[in-house]
Design a binder for these strands. Sequence first.
RNA 1: GCGAGCGUGGCGGAAUUGGCAGACGCGCUGGACUUAGGAUCCAGUGGACUAAAUCCGUGGGGGUUCAAAUCCCCCCGCUCGCACCA
Length: 816
Amino acid sequence: MSMEDIEKKWQARWREAGVFDAPTEPGEDKFYLMEMFAYPSGDVHMGHFRNYSIGDLVYRYKRMQGKKILHPFGWDSFGLPAEQAAIKRKIHPGQWTEKNIATGKSTLQALGVSYDWGREIATSRPDYYKWTQWVFVELYKMGLAYQKEASVNWCPECNTVLANEQVVAGCCWRHEDTPVQRKSLKQWFFKITDYAQRLLDDLDKLDQWPDAVKNIQRYWIGRSEGANIRFTIAETGDELPIFTTRPDTVYGVTFMAIAPEAELMKRLIARCPNRAEVEKYIANSASKSEIERVAEDREKDGMFTGLHVRNPYNGDLVPLFVADYVLAGYGSGAVMAVPAHDQRDFEFARKYGIEIKIVISPKEGVLDPVEMAEAFTLPGIMANSCGFDGQSSIEAKRAIVEFGEREGFAETAIQFRLRDWLISRQRYWGAPIPIVHCERCGTVSVPEEQLPVILPHVDDFLPKGRSPLADVPEFMNTVCPLCGGPALRDPDTMDTYVCSSWYELRYLDPRNESAPFDIAEAKKWLPVDMYIGGIEHATSHLLYFRFIAKVLFDLGYLPVDEPVVKLFNHGMVCDVNGDKMSKSKGNVISPMEIANKHGVDVSRTAMLFFAPPAHEISWNEDGMKGAERFLRKIDNFVAEGISRDRVAGALENMTPRDAELFKALNRTVKAVTGDIEGMSYNTAIARLMEFMNLISVEDMAESGIAFTIADTLARLIAPIAPHLAEELNERLGFEPFVIDRPWPSWVESLTVLDSIEIGVQVNGKLRGTIEIPTDSDKEGAMAVATQVPNIAKHLEDKKIAQVIYIRGRILNIIVK
RNA sequence: GCGAGCGUGGCGGAAUUGGCAGACGCGCUGGACUUAGGAUCCAGUGGACUAAAUCCGUGGGGGUUCAAAUCCCCCCGCUCGCACCA
């Protein structure tokens, strides 16, 4: 039977038997396995294939270990490309999406991936987004969803706002050459900052997450400890609060700086003596793109407001500048500037001739404000700081804040880099925000019984800078759920990351019409035991995913507040030259093409063998030959009609060759099991190849344990080459499925070799090898070693000073 | 610039965590079987010489150790993440 026929045969049988349907009562052996779901943008690509091959391997291995597994799949099917396709091809986004889902699904089925298709979901279908809207309403009711006017990222190409995570190097994540603009707009946010501390602290609980991801998240959350200090604007009496991590430098403040877009700036502008110039400066910086403002080589600039600020610590009066190196969205949007001890302030002061006042002296040497070439940012000894002089600056930090606390103008404070999550988008193909704006009642969330707010059919998707839904009167005009009066719907749709922030929960109970999921199902299956996907979602998806789980946990819907126990990031699949596959480069290889040519099992085995799963791989067609030969050899060796009585019994009753083979088989089972547990699939396959190199066709024809060998091999390759494994299993007379048979076990004592070859060194240089009993002692090893001519030669006329013998590893003879 | 990681044959990669560097595979060389081989099988394959012996060899330099790809220090190169977070 051809590989292709074998694949078709077993895929059909799996489907008919519903083998991958999750059990309803998984009990203690439950295992929730998830791969990141896919955006249906055409067909499955190599990256998906790798991701799902790894997941499928885990599934089959765990199943043979007796786990009761939930392994679902779905589609992250809202999003921009559907609209772009609609514009380009004049096909409705919904149609385009569903067509791609159908294609993708049939590909995954042809690849034999072990999904429970009965639980398939698609985020763009009303039975799913109804509950995405429910999630929104739950957050809204908790005060975690709110609207505010804010300076936001705007992509002129997408014609929509972007979340911070969707801005890459100052450009749009979907248009890498389009600089993001700043716009002040009223938008919906999720208050993820309320959870910043927990999201940070709980990273410590995630001991099975890659450190890389945890580090990226820690940095992204960006906790800083410092102080809030209230300065006052001399001319107006307004308070000017600032956050600083360096309260120890507060006596060195020689100017203050405020961001052009800062809330406070809007109020101050009317009071500025230099109003015209300040307004011009603000308008000018608003016109700059994010990328211009952030450019590394850009000189800092600013404009004196004409206002002055009083330092509450020493009464100093310093000028207030508006400067766009100050971030509006962090802290209060204003900073105290200490040129002597902050490099940014230093550069600014030098440019505008502002005083540089030294308040911390280095332990060695003296700073000269005129001569110094850069700010001194290290700890040191306090100076020019009233009563704090002479203290170490590290101690003074606390003392200065305490002093400010007593006087009532300062307190310790924590700041996070993390900003609230901007979730509204001015696009069509997304879940409508379930909010009604009523003139009388204000902002009202749509009651659960009125969900979903159905996305209406629209024909014109050309971006106009506002949501296409705004132009659909039938959609916009509604009645207020509270007062029944006329009201307008919110025209925006949600960021697709909202859809993917809770999808692991819908899989639990995907056809539930009265709730997003049954809490009983959540208790059965959560948390997700293993989640496999690329590392590119480290800050976005994976942070939102954790956040929403925590919110729903707080609301009592979930038994756990962290959704995923083990996270695994697989490496990318590149082309032969190591370049990223992309449509524009024209170097995309389709997994279906590969599978049609070589077979699914061969393609998978090759993919898994190329490199450890976490590594990036370069797809090299030549490398597939090894996998092909390997599987063919197994296919040939596990022949039809091997008698069932040719099984391994006691070692003493075997021929020497069989004993040798049986021990090798035991070692192989042990090694393969260990490698799979450690997700070292490439070496697991190498161990199997090694075993195949050891046995011969004659062995299989003559051996008294041929059946044991064949049976063990069939089971060992089940996670790697599942179709062939089923076929061999059937050939050996087992039924119905190899994955329902137990994973092979081994006898530990049989994995230990009787004798072992170790290297012998003289003065640390290898001079020969000896074969000795594995449990040989030092004297025994020496006795053998000294008989080896070349070793003896090096010992001649020398005095043995020391003998180092590590059992099973090395013998090192030190001579003088 | 800051943070994290990596650097091993012609190539992909192994190395029980300090103990024979190069498992396994690709490629290459030679041979067998063949009308034929881009099929299969066997053997070889880090370098310096053809063999034994010897020496060199895990980005470069130094160190610790009986012993270093592995640990420490310095340098070089690459990849990823972050980009004025006060």
